[in-house]
Design a binder for these strands. Sequence first.
DNA 1: CTTTTGCCGTACCGTACGTTACGGTTCGGT
DNA 2: ACCGAACCGTAACGTACGGTACGGCAAAAG
Lengths: 214, 214
Amino acid sequence: MQSVTEASDSPLTERQRDVLDAALGLLVEAGDTLTMTSVARRASCSKETLYKWFGDRDGLLTATVQWQASKVRGIPAKRDGLDLISLTSGLERFASDWLRVLSGKISVALNRIAVSHAGSDKRDLGAIVLENGPFAMARRLMPLLEVGREAGLLAFEDTEEAFRTFFGLVVRDVQIRLLLGDRFELTDVAIDGEARRATQQFFALYGAYTNGAG
Amino acid sequence: MQSVTEASDSPLTERQRDVLDAALGLLVEAGDTLTMTSVARRASCSKETLYKWFGDRDGLLTATVQWQASKVRGIPAKRDGLDLISLTSGLERFASDWLRVLSGKISVALNRIAVSHAGSDKRDLGAIVLENGPFAMARRLMPLLEVGREAGLLAFEDTEEAFRTFFGLVVRDVQIRLLLGDRFELTDVAIDGEARRATQQFFALYGAYTNGAG
DNA sequence: CTTTTGCCGTACCGTACGTTACGGTTCGGT
DNA sequence: ACCGAACCGTAACGTACGGTACGGCAAAAG
């Protein structure tokens, strides 16, 4: 027996991971209208166990979001961006991956939960999603941008500023429209096209061989 | 007596508007955790009246969102963008206004509500917010962009494509961070700076005097 | 074999809240 | 002055759901 709600680095039994996967599935299907009873039934476990492991409903939600975050985390960006070709393809692949994750059902569902719980005095799911969403993207991308700058391929003063512009060029209105329930068809080829366009526009703004209008 | 839930263009009594303002205030303060009782108390009306006018809780929420939308709607964009100066200032003012609305408490609250209700089978608040948010922005801005193109100041093929890029350059990660509860200080001068940067970058991408990389 | 532990299944409790019902009050119409 | 409609305030109902208690079982510990 171990309560997961205390320290953030509890090792999580395989059974617990199964339970969280069940909760994740229900979260995607039903949003935060999921009930403790439904989670228990889906996971074939008792409600008592849920409460023993996760404390309360909010603890279960938090653990579920963290569990998904731990799955996505750790796709390291390759730092081989020394020439223009590899930097370009690195940015493109980055944008492509990001859009793919962003438009996935799980991401949409989790962002919905976090948004609707933000501003509450409970455990802040928003902070977790923020940390594993935009902030994680920044942590992974900004080193790549700086490598590009040191290689003389990019020109900017504020790295965060450059990153946020890249973010805007990649995501545009896609995420908010998805969150607001707009039916959106975003095929894989469309995503790749978006990534290519965003990268191209980013180079038009921050490429060292054009104007360095940072 | 008139039920507002049926036709979308019910004229709304002044008393009803007062009630919706009260609901709006509670929505900003408490999110969708507001109760029918609290709305009745704040508006000094009976719950029976709430149900007679708006049908049910969801109808009240919908009416409230529509009421706020009807307040924001109808700030027409001036179509005087014939020379570069006025086009630039038009875009800047547009971006500035948009960021100001976007970062306001009411906008954040309403987007939160709409996001958390999206994907539900109830009346779609997401569609309303979408219609009065990004889509309204598009309807107002795209004509201005086309005027700029016809005046030879901008170069692009797909107007919607150009608009969405402008959207991305203006909003970047601001909205999602606000929705996720990130404490964010966005002063008026900062907003004006953002608007200026976005406009400048947009001209760098779509200005006719540079490359027309649409 | 006995004890302990951990968990399942289920019944149960308390409460919050959406919704309805009803008596009392205001107010415009005649 | 009278009537009826609209509305206020509040009490009451029904229910869904978070949280708890408890009996039974299987497996590990002793």
